[in-house]
Design a binder for these strands. Structure first.
Lengths: 133, 133
DNA sequence: TCAATATATGCCCAAAACGGCATATGTCAA
DNA sequence: TTGACATATGCCGTTTTGGGCATATATTGA
């Protein structure tokens, strides 16, 4: 038996409902975009904008509500949905941990291009052990 | 029939594999964190770090590979996985569109608290049409 | 060649996600 | 009240997802 040995079966991450999975859905991202530009809207306004059945929109809104990225306010028989961007901040903070990496890696792409261009000119071609893509 | 009328049934968003859904999985986020701190690692190193079965890790890596957030390099019989943070930049850019919102909304929370405190003192209570939460 | 190691993949199953649809619930106005 | 409108929810069926497991596919060394 290899060293990594099977551990506890882990019974499927239960109710994994966090902001990350909430924004994994394209339509839910769209809803957030709509709410971000133009402020709060009623469900029917969103339905009209998204051209989707009302129950579908309501369910997506429910998901967004459960993770706290939107909030509802009653306004007569309507419900006005408003974005709660603070929750998105958490995602932003997680992503930002990689910010240095992607700028560095972009630099390296440029570096490599320049290095390759420089190596192409002299006749003596070095054998490069790493075939980086 | 209400005005929103049911439109095309939309045959289920096919293969929706984008970066957003890739990072929706906690274990996949963990993998990215591991690769971010400490550079590229072999599958077995990841398996040891995550204490998960090797096939599980390999499958998560496959997902991350398909969306381009990681890249593989052969190193003998090992495969070294490396993070490709540029793909995460797309997510960052999407999230950043809301940055102004979450700072503003934080401001508004403070504002509202101050306004309520100020309104509590004078006796004349205006009727406010919007009952914001 | 064979065996060992490292990793990927395929198959099966259970759980979850999503859409369609009907219907329940709530709210206002007559 | 009743009825119209606005929205949520429950049920069902299909698809997807993720885990467990066995096994296929490299790759190296003897």
């Amino acid at each position: 038996m290899p060293f990594w040995a099977y551990i506890e079966p882990v019974p499927r991450a239960a109710s994994d409902l966090d902001v990350f999975s909430a924004i994994a859905e394209p339509r839910r991202r769209r809803i957030l975009e709509l709410l971000a530009t133009g402020g709060s809207r009623s469900v029917n306004e969103l339905v009209a904008a998204m051209r989707l059945p009302q129950p579908t929109v309501s369910k997506h809104l429910a998901v967004l509500r459960e993770v706290g990225v939107v909030a509802v306010t009653r306004d007569g028989k309507r419900r006005l949905y408003e974005i709660k961007a603070q929750e998105l901040k958490a995602v932003n903070e997680w992503i930002s941990r990689f910010e240095r990496l992607w700028t560095h890696q972009l630099d390296r792409v440029k570096e490599r291009a320049e290095r390759l261009a420089a190596e192409a000119r002299p006749s003596g071609a070095k054998n490069n052990r790493h075939k980086e893509n």
